[in-house]
Design a protein around this nucleic acid. Structure first.
Length: 304
DNA sequence: AAGACGAAAGTGGTTGA
DNA sequence: TCAACAACTTTCGTCTT
């Protein structure tokens, strides 16, 4: 995957404003919001055990995600021990032991979970809002005892997925499973279990969202993406989208749009970014072409 | 040689009796 | 709880560029 210069998929501008609040890139010219999941070279991760030390009690606003990492701090670090007198050291150990006992299992669980959450969201470059939302969901799940019998990683991953769906961020199942390092099947099961138990309603992500994302990933020009969106919308009117995987629809629409403009993208390439197989693209593609009465021409001819 | 196409069989999940 | 079913995948052979 070549890193190309970041370009707005709608208007082609290369100037963006970064919104640190949400972690989004916003096109200066047309205001299109580009998820940072797309390759901005900014890969900040933090595994900051030591870093946390300096930030502790720094008075940063308490948010749900921080609660487990920042506030329920350990008492001191090992290095600090050497600066202490004997009695102080004894006191230290006593406190430390006390803390361990006093820390409820829920609290400990949350702490680990929040670290994991941070890891996943920053690896995928997801906006802060997702992190907060996922944390909220996890907390709720934890309080209802839904975690029992499931690994923390899996539950966290499921929460992230739910959060993304709620916030309409088109991230695929696979991406999360991969970033979290959990089994896809298990993740799916946990995900469904959670939304049932927590009575969360998630509407399926619109294929349009995926069109934008995949289009950007494939470096397709704005006209092609606009065309693909048009196709998706027409398909929706004819009720071709319900019950089908939105990714498949988006992929097929992009494929059709690209060939209409004479842009050669292999089904394989598109299938790859969309997380579906070529066969699925073909099926949707066939379906779309015949039901919408489209004609594919290489000369950039347009249908009404 | 690579990509597109499609048939056939398999997988995991949903639904309805 | 189980069987039918839809959507999607895997695999593989054939045609096209």
């Amino acid at each position: 995957m070549a890193e190309q210069k970041l370009r707005c998929p709608v208007c082609g501008s290369t100037e963006f404003i970064y919104d640190p609040e949400t972690g989004e890139l916003i096109c200066k010219r047309c205001g299109y919001v580009l998820e940072t999941t797309v390759d901005v070279g900014k890969e900040w991760r933090e595994f900051d055990i030591k870093d946390a030390e300096t930030k502790r009690r720094a008075g940063s606003p308490t948010t749900l995600t921080k609660m487990a990492t920042g506030l329920s701090t350990e008492i001191g670090n090992i290095e600090d021990l050497y600066k202490l007198s004997e009695e102080e050291r004894a006191e230290f150990m006593r406190l430390k032991k006390w803390q361990q006992r006093a820390t409820s299992s829920l609290e400990r669980n949350l702490k680990i979970a929040m670290q994991e959450l941070k890891r996943i969201t920053s690896q995928l470059n997801l906006p802060q809002t997702v992190e907060e939302e996922a944390a909220k969901i996890y907390l709720e799940a934890a309080e209802k005892g839904l975690i029992r019998g499931r690994s923390i990683e899996t539950v966290v991953a499921a929460c992230v997925y739910i959060a993304c769906r709620k916030l309409e961020i088109p991230v695929t199942f696979e991406e999360i499973a991969q970033a979290a390092g959990v089994n896809k099947k298990e993740l799916g099961r946990t995900y469904r279990y959670l939304i049932r138990q927590l009575k969360i309603k998630v509407l399926p992500i619109s294929p349009v969202e995926y069109v934008h994302r995949f289009g950007a990933l494939l470096n397709l020009p704005p006209e092609v993406i606009a065309k693909a969106v048009e196709i998706v919308e027409k398909a929706r009117e004819l009720d071709l989208t319900s019950g089908r995987g939105p990714q498949g629809i988006a992929a097929a629409a992009l494929y059709i749009a690209a060939t209409m403009y004479g842009i050669r993208k292999t089904q394989r390439e598109i299938a790859e970014v969309a997380g579906v197989t070529e066969v699925t693209i073909r099926n949707r593609y066939k379906e779309l072409v015949e039901k919408l009465g489209l004609q594919i021409e290489e000369t950039g001819k347009k249908k009404r």
